[in-house]
Structure formats: C-alpha cells, structure tokens
Simulated scan of single mutants.
Amino acid sequence: MNERKAEIVGHHRKTIEFVHSLHEVSEETWRMELGAGQWSVAEVIGHLIPWDEFVLQKRIPYLFTNEQLPKGPEATTLNNASAFKSRNEEKSATIRQFVSVRSNLLNAIHEISNNRWKEELLIGQTRLQLYDYFNGLAEHDLHHFAQVKRVVQHN
C-alpha cells in the first residue's frame, strides 16, 4: 500500500476506534456541549455520518470518471438535520451508525488502487490530488475529535 493511502486508511481506522470508545462515556458527557452555545459530543459525531455517506455515494464513484461530480449538499442544512437527529437518538444508535458508515468508507478507500493517489482531481474549481482531498477530510475529523476529547477528558 502506498504511504499516502496507508496514512488515510490508518486515520479512518483510528476514528472508528475512537468513536467506538465513546460507548464508555456517560450520557451526561455525551450530551454535553463542547462550549457555550456549541454542539454536543453527540451532535459532533452525528454530523460526520451524512458527510461520510456523501463521500461514499457522491464523490468516490465519480472521482475517476469523466462525469461531472454531483453538487454537494448545503452544509448548514445537512449539519442542522444531522445534529437534530443525533440530539434525539440513543448514544448507541449514533455510535453504531458512525462505525458502520465509516467502516464502509474505509473499505471504499482501501479499494482505490495505489496508483490513483497522486492523480489530480477537479472538485468544483479546485485541482488537487486524491490524498489532499482525503487529508482535508481527515483534518476536519481531527479538529472535531480534539474538541470531543477535551470534553470527555474533563468529565
């Protein structure tokens, strides 16, 4: 496996392990806001699920075709809907769904051949390599997971 692909695969494995470990946090911590007026741990984890589904369904299948990439969802609408859903469902359901969808994404990434990781993609008006696309998503994960870890470690 090429180094860049291995890095992204490793990241996704770690995220699955981390979210799975959140089964151990109390319900109070799970529902706790990251800061005043911010999302809760539940909402942060829940909002990642539809974005993973989007990448699985509307990005990966189109990346190496001549077809136009489907338009991305409106972020605020998607985030608000997913936050509402995770606010109102059981912790175990949100965690289970995250682990399932992220595992599917991990499998799809694993299936991308090694030689594709340096190919240039056009996403909207932006040209970037496949690694850069997935690394940007990983940085988004890490930002949110750092927030979640601060709440979990202090409770």
Score class of each variant (00 low, 15 high):
residue 46 G to M: 05
residue 124 G to A: 02
residue 100 S to R: 05
residue 95 I to H: 07
residue 91 K to E: 11
residue 122 L to G: 03
residue 55 V to D: 11
residue 61 P to Y: 08
residue 94 T to R: 06
residue 96 R to M: 06
residue 110 H to A: 12
residue 56 L to N: 09
residue 44 V to G: 02
residue 95 I to T: 01
residue 48 L to T: 02
residue 34 L to S: 03
residue 57 Q to D: 14
residue 99 V to S: 02
residue 36 A to R: 11
residue 116 R to T: 05
residue 76 T to V: 05
residue 121 L to H: 01
residue 45 I to F: 09
residue 70 P to L: 12
residue 95 I to R: 10
residue 100 S to Y: 03
residue 121 L to Q: 01
residue 43 E to L: 06
residue 115 N to F: 08
residue 94 T to E: 02
residue 44 V to A: 06
residue 103 S to N: 07
residue 97 Q to H: 15
residue 124 G to C: 04
residue 91 K to M: 11
residue 109 I to C: 08
residue 55 V to N: 14
residue 91 K to D: 10
residue 75 A to M: 06
residue 96 R to T: 07
residue 122 L to P: 00
residue 120 E to V: 10
residue 64 F to M: 08
residue 46 G to R: 07
residue 82 S to Q: 07
residue 33 E to D: 11
residue 109 I to K: 12
residue 95 I to M: 07
residue 87 R to P: 00
residue 116 R to K: 14
residue 95 I to F: 04
residue 58 K to L: 12
residue 86 S to R: 07
residue 52 D to M: 14
residue 37 G to P: 09
residue 69 L to V: 06
residue 110 H to L: 15
residue 121 L to R: 01
residue 43 E to I: 06
residue 81 A to G: 07
residue 49 I to N: 09
residue 74 E to Q: 11
residue 87 R to E: 11
residue 116 R to P: 03
residue 53 E to S: 06
residue 90 E to M: 03
residue 83 A to F: 02
residue 59 R to N: 04
residue 37 G to R: 04
residue 109 I to P: 03
residue 108 A to D: 10
residue 125 Q to P: 00
residue 120 E to R: 05
residue 90 E to P: 00
residue 60 I to T: 09
residue 104 N to V: 01
residue 122 L to T: 12
residue 43 E to M: 12
residue 83 A to G: 11
residue 86 S to A: 15
residue 41 V to F: 03
residue 68 Q to W: 07
residue 116 R to F: 11
residue 44 V to H: 02
residue 43 E to Y: 02
residue 59 R to F: 08
residue 91 K to R: 11
residue 74 E to S: 05
residue 66 N to E: 11
residue 86 S to G: 03
residue 117 W to T: 00
residue 39 W to C: 05
residue 81 A to F: 11
residue 54 F to P: 00
residue 84 F to D: 15
residue 80 N to S: 14
residue 113 S to T: 09
residue 64 F to P: 01
residue 49 I to A: 13
residue 52 D to N: 14
residue 74 E to T: 04
residue 32 M to I: 01
residue 100 S to W: 01
residue 32 M to N: 06
residue 105 L to D: 10
residue 99 V to N: 05
residue 85 K to S: 14
residue 82 S to Y: 04
residue 48 L to F: 15
residue 113 S to V: 08
residue 51 W to Y: 12
residue 84 F to W: 13
residue 96 R to S: 14
residue 39 W to Q: 01
residue 47 H to T: 10
residue 85 K to A: 15
residue 82 S to L: 06
residue 81 A to D: 12
residue 116 R to Y: 14
residue 39 W to T: 00
residue 110 H to W: 10
residue 49 I to R: 02
residue 120 E to I: 10
residue 97 Q to E: 13
